[in-house]
Design a protein around this nucleic acid. Structure first.
Lengths: 164, 164
DNA sequence: TCTTGAACTTCAAGTTACTTGAAGACCTAC
DNA sequence: GTAGGTCTTCAAGTAACTTGAAGTTCAAGA
């Protein structure tokens, strides 16, 4: 057994197997080595690369954005300054997201807290603290990023709030 | 002028106007009052509701999840305990996202920092610190949420990293 | 008052990033 | 050696918008 099967890679990276094949198809992952029967086999490099890809995707960067980052990681011939500038840009975006997410965390936490104290135990109609969550942010409006893209589908979370 | 036009609402909430119409169409926003000519007019309530919706969407909660939150906010007859439990669940999800995002922030920040010092000034091939970003997370694997959904399309950010 | 151009209207089709399904080959374990 | 899970490819479906077309409305200036 020279490497990991697609299912194992999927498990280790928190990805669905069809998604891995999809990434290979669109060139985000390199074509995997095949076994005699044609099944894909993966190594540590692949685990790393896919972990990075998933992380980036999870916070809403597009496939194309992730592609350029992955290229950066893989290509040491690239100008260091160029890489730094790209990374800096993304750092700003990530920090903006972080601020929003922190605001959301505070909002939901205080909602939960006031539920505990105010309604302690029974049903009650005076629990509209969630309104806080709807307050406009500190700065002008909601555009967080530099070049926001569409999509960002999937997210995790059961059934309710988010963001901030 | 009894209220805001759709363009103004869009601006205040960082939403595109077609998206607002789309939300109305799928019932995420209530049908807006119309002027004589049929144009939509909005009030403060709508600004609040849409702000909340956008915030939730931005951090990857699905339309259906947002719908249930919006209902929660709007419906004070609902059991306070039920609301609290929902909110709690989401708080956990948000906190998990927060941890991942913080890890990403550290990763990119240290990449930028090492670019500054190591390659200070010119191109150089020894800048592969981005590998840190690809390390598996502290805990088992990448599944952050309770009931992760598809999609989350759009994201902001110019062209590179994300997540963690 | 007229008119021009931005902002609005609806509806249909396109896009991204997957997911789901079908039909069949492979492979490990009993 | 065969059952059941995992794999293969390919096609079609889905979510959440976006983009475009074709026409209407409205505020402001000549």
């Amino acid at each position: 057994m020279p490497g990991l099967k697609i299912g194992t890679l999927a498990e280790r990276t928190g990805t669905n197997t069809p998604t891995i094949r999809y990434y290979e198809k669109i060139g985000l992952l390199p074509r995997a080595d095949r076994q005699d029967g044609g099944q894909r086999r993966y190594g540590d490099e692949d685990v790393k690369r896919l972990t990075l890809i998933r992380r980036c995707r999870e916070f809403g960067f597009s496939i194309e954005q992730v592609r350029s980052l992955a290229a950066l990681v893989e290509d040491p011939d690239r100008s260091c300054l160029e890489a730094r500038d790209l990374a800096r840009e993304h750092l700003m975006v990530v920090r903006a997201k972080l601020r929003e997410l922190q605001a959301l965390e505070r909002g939901i936490a205080s909602f939960v807290a006031s539920c505990e104290t105010a309604c302690a135990g029974g049903p009650g109609p005076d629990c509209t603290i969630l309104e806080d969550l709807a307050k406009p942010a500190g700065r002008a409006n909601g555009a967080v990023g530099i070049g926001q893209r569409r999509d960002r589908r999937h997210a995790r979370g059961s059934d309710m709030v988010g963001r901030a």
